[in-house]
């Protein structure tokens, strides 16, 4: 079973995805694939909050900010994987060396291919992304490359996943597949 979860910030995506991954695991092995590479205290605080949220849910955490298929080398594939988030993964892949600010323009295409392969390689996968496409702003070119790239990954994953859920203020709209919770 493969599930794609997206929606606005703080709308309940991660909690929903965690509960769902635990349910899909049915008592079996379940991994939390953390893709964010913390760069400041705000990031570290967010990670602490997510860790506290997951306490007692039995996840084994794998940190993997780039080259996402490499995390399968250290894991049992016949298990449930929660990947949080596609957004952070693309950010890391788009800027291989954050210090020089240079963009890898193949990053989105590569992430999309890798994530579909990831979904096909494991028993259950739950992907969390962010819906960042509906606001009144004119962004700079770099931000537009990022938004277009993330949307391309999202659409590729949505086409490949069994179930697609959008979180909206703690409510969940099922766009594809079955309502699972």
């Amino acid at each position: 079973m493969t599930v794609f979860v997206s929606g606005g910030a703080k709308n309940g995506k991660s909690s929903f995805a965690q509960d769902l991954a635990v349910k899909l695991a049915k008592g079996g092995k379940h991994y939390y694939v953390a893709t964010m590479i913390p760069s400041d205290e705000e990031d570290r605080e967010r990670i602490r909050k997510h860790l506290a949220d997951r306490e007692g849910l039995g996840f084994e955490t794998i940190e993997c900010g780039r080259n996402i298929l490499s995390c399968l080398d250290k894991a049992e594939k016949d298990a449930t994987f929660l990947l949080d988030s596609v957004t952070a993964l693309l950010m890391n892949e788009l800027f291989p060396n954050p210090a020089d600010g240079k963009m890898d323009t193949d990053a989105a295409w590569r992430c999309a291919e890798d994530l579909v392969t990831f979904a096909q390689s494991v028993r259950n996968a739950v992907f969390v992304s962010d819906y960042i496409y509906s606001d009144a702003a004119c962004y700079d070119e770099t931000t537009e490359v990022y938004r277009a790239g993330l949307a391309a990954i999202d659409r590729r994953l949505v086409a490949a996943c069994d179930t697609v859920v959008e979180a909206a203020a703690g409510n969940f709209i099922v766009h594809k597949g079955e309502a699972l919770l």
Partner: peptide, 19 residues
């Protein structure tokens, strides 16, 4: 039409009017 009206209220007056 793109639903540009879902995000936070922008600081700029023109963007607010657009939204």
């Amino acid at each position: 039409c793109q639903d540009i009206f879902c995000g936070v209220v922008p600081l700029g007056e023109e963007m607010r009017a657009w939204r």
